[in-house]
Design a protein around this nucleic acid. Structure first.
Lengths: 279, 279
DNA sequence: CGCGCCTTTGAGGGCTTTCAAGAGAAGTGG
DNA sequence: CCACTTCTCTTGAAAGCCCTCAAAGGCGCG
């Protein structure tokens, strides 16, 4: 049931010709370094919609780069509770959660038929030790994951349903745009339930807010899944909490969550010269 | 109004004698490797309570290991909203958020007078390229950060106030215990407002739930800050959502947030032979 | 074409927030 | 050392946002 497209290379994946090279690899690699990088990827893996790339508890062996399609990752606590912790699309690196304990702590499932490039960690170790630029790039990718999750926590922590969904949509738009697709119109590969889980809302609330956005002319919908951001600016303002009128009930005070706690001043950057004195 | 900046401490820091060595450095380093590691830390830095180690926007130059004291890190969105994204205590590594973009995206502030060891990133780069064990350790630490945040997202996403606070307390207890302190009785260095911000609750709710726990004999309080977990087992059950009776209103259905979505099957671990199949 | 999953929409209730006030603790300066 | 200021914590009452429960329409798929 697969239609062969290119009579392509077989076992060997070639990064140098890959259109996504700038996403997985750092820019400006020398010829020699690029050659090293070639050895990073062993195979490409195909995951059918609904199948999982790995599951919580699986031994950590590789990192993966999304080559085609999209996935979600979910974490579940001791009890049955489960939550979507992220969506991954073309060019994203997946699997960092396994590095810590040697086994994965989350499940990663394909939202559609998907292909990923496999980076065996052992080989990654070897290559990154030789190529500083690659090592740095890897660190950058991990750090980006951390920062992204911090932003998400901000959403989950104190934002209203409207703000969360708006934030979700513009984030998605930005990521599509960064990959060369339209940031104005795209397809939501995930269900309302998955969006809700990701945002800490119920699927009903997601649906309701989506309808509200639709009524307010902020978005257009086609077939439920295809969405067009009719007013990205306002969506962005809503996400930032800067939108005064809001979409329904009038706004509340900008925050109040965390009143100023204490005066603060940076120490790390300042005066490393002042010496002496010990604890 | 400003706090006097404390004199930064410039002592020759020796990792080999450090009691916290097992937290910052991987176990089982050879003598030679340990010698390399010595070069990692340049100085120890002192931060007075309320002062910040670094702030959002500061250039990323170093990672820091908490040597004494405790800190919080906060992220703020475009608008004035601010949220605590983590608490750091002895042995924790801090600063990973800066690796991604080259500048920090969060603020880190001392909750009490604190000292941190400074790991200049450039030197870290050099040393880790030579010592694989150190490189791996660094990756592990970053990954652990990611996993920890995933757990936190689970809390913020769908848990009740009781469950969040219980989870917060037992997590804190575990961390103290892992560091050799009592996991039964410890001091909360952060305010209720900071706990609330971290958990996505208001300070009033934190206070209320804390009082509830007190009434139910789950904890003991002394001076508001000093806490003793009187019934850690039950706290753990509450955090996991396994506790039937709960502390007040009767429990609700275990979840319902994310009903089973699709059948799933792991692809990465299984049958690597059918991997190379091509698009 | 029918079944199942996803989505939408409504009504009611509950958990948290918001607003407010007072007690308690901590730091400051006389 | 104590009074003062300031911050933190506690507690109450009312309101609100979101969840839960329920039912029906839509869409894809076998």
């Amino acid at each position: 049931m697969d239609m062969p497209i290119s009579p392509a290379v077989h076992s060997r994946v070639t990064c140098s010709n890959c259109l996504l090279r700038n996403l997985c690899l750092p820019p400006g690699l020398s010829h020699r370094e690029l050659e090293c990088a070639e050895h990073l990827v062993s195979t490409r893996l195909r995951i059918r919609r609904g199948a999982s790339l790995y599951r919580s508890g699986d031994a950590f062996k590789s990192l993966y780069a999304v080559w085609l399609g999209s996935l979600k990752s979910t974490t579940s606590s001791d009890d049955a509770r489960e939550q979507v912790t992220g969506f991954h699309m073309t060019g994203d690196m997946v699997g960092f959660d396994g590095l810590g304990a040697g086994s994965h702590t989350s499940d990663v499932v394909a939202l559609e038929d998907t292909e990923v490039c496999v980076f065996p960690y052992q080989r990654l170790e070897e290559v990154t030790s030789a190529v500083p630029a690659l090592r740095q790039h890897l660190h950058r990718l991990m750090s980006r994951d951390i920062v992204r999750q911090q932003r998400l926590m901000l959403m989950l922590g104190g934002m209203h349903a409207h703000e969360r969904l708006a934030g979700f949509l513009v984030d998605l738009a930005d990521r599509f745009e960064a990959r060369g697709y339209s940031g104005r119109e795209f397809i939501l590969r995930m269900t309302r339930a998955e969006i809700g889980s990701f945002l800490g809302l119920t699927l009903e609330t997601v649906s309701r807010v989506m309808s509200q956005f639709l009524r307010d002319g902020l978005i257009d919908l086609r077939n439920v899944k295809q969405i067009r951001l009719a007013d990205p600016g306002r969506l962005r303002r809503i996400a930032a909490g800067t939108d005064v009128a809001k979409t329904q009930g009038l706004g509340r005070a900008p925050d109040a969550h965390l009143r100023v706690l204490r005066p603060a001043r940076t120490v790390a950057a300042a005066r490393p010269e002042m010496a002496a004195e010990f604890a």
